[in-house]
Amino acid sequence: MTFLGVRRGLQLLLGLFLYGLSLAMMIRATLGVSPWDVLGQGGSLRTGIPFGFMTNIIGLIVLLLWIPLRQRPGIGTVLNVALVGPSAEIGLALLTEPTQLWARILLFTGGLVLLAVASGLYIGARLGPGPRDGLMTGIHARSGLPIWLVRTGIEGTVLVLGWLLGGTVGLGTVAFALLIGPLINLALPVFRVPERPRPAPDTAPDTATAGT
């Protein structure tokens, strides 16, 4: 295995663990859940389907949206589903809910920044994005729009839809929707693993025709 291959694997695993930890930080801050969780709450209220199952259903629908965008899942897509949840549970077990507002704001801000870094790590590993991040990168690739604009548009749309369905919106939810796109836009170039260099074309003269 090459150095780049080892780096990509380690970067993927670290990014997914930190992603789950960042979710736990924002949940413990109790300033508002992410727009996707607002959508899950609203969908659960409207249908009676438990929140966890509704989250899985939304993830499946998002994966179906990959088809017209010509996105392909990778090992990172599978591991996203398998590892983010357990790492979030570890974070929730380690963290407690702060009692003071300034501490909650600080915890939420740290979680938001960490989520952007984690997204840059595991998306930058180029082993397959998660369902929601794949939607972002797919629209970016097909439309040519900046990453920050695509992500902000997705988060804003999801937030409004979830709110209309009855999901709970807090100040942290609005901050997440507005800031996560620009933050990921900053993180992706920093952590993107470079493409493997292609071999140089053979420019040696054809000995069969040389001198003719």
Rank of each mutant, 00 (worst) to 15 (best):
M1F: 10
F3W: 11
L4V: 13
R8A: 01
L10T: 13
L13Q: 02
L14S: 09
L16E: 04
Y19R: 01
G20S: 04
L21D: 03
S22K: 10
A24S: 14
M26I: 03
A29L: 11
S34L: 13
P35I: 13
L39Q: 09
G42D: 06
G43L: 14
S44G: 02
S44Y: 00
L45W: 05
T47E: 02
I49L: 11
G52M: 13
F53L: 14
I58M: 13
G59D: 03
L60Y: 08
V62P: 00
L63N: 02
L64F: 14
L65K: 09
L65A: 13
W66Y: 14
I67P: 10
R70V: 05
Q71F: 06
Q71D: 06
G74H: 10
G74I: 09
G76C: 03
V78C: 11
L79F: 07
N80V: 12
N80Q: 04
V81P: 04
V81N: 12
V81F: 14
V84G: 01
V84F: 12
P86D: 00
P86R: 06
A93H: 10
L94T: 09
P98L: 06
Q100W: 06
Q100H: 09
Q100T: 12
Q100S: 12
L106W: 02
L106C: 02
L107G: 01
L107V: 04
F108W: 06
L112R: 07
L115D: 10
A116K: 02
V117E: 07
V117G: 03
S119F: 04
S119P: 08
G120Q: 05
G120A: 04
L121W: 01
G124V: 05
G124F: 03
A125I: 01
G130S: 08
P131Y: 07
R132P: 05
D133T: 04
L135C: 11
M136W: 08
G138P: 04
I139S: 08
I139F: 00
H140M: 08
H140F: 00
A141P: 02
A141N: 06
S143E: 05
S143C: 10
P146L: 01
L149W: 11
V150F: 02
R151Y: 06
R151D: 03
T152H: 02
G153F: 04
E155I: 09
T157K: 07
L159M: 12
L161N: 02
L164E: 12
L165C: 08
L165R: 00
G167R: 09
V169C: 10
T173Y: 04
V174E: 09
A177H: 09
L178D: 08
L178K: 13
L179A: 13
L183P: 07
L186Q: 07
L186P: 03
F191D: 00
V193H: 05
E195W: 02
R196V: 15
P197N: 06
R198A: 15
P201G: 09
P201C: 07
D202H: 10
T203I: 12
A204C: 03
A204Y: 08
P205I: 15
P205D: 15
P205V: 14
D206W: 13
D206T: 03
A208Q: 10
G211I: 10
T212W: 11
T212R: 15
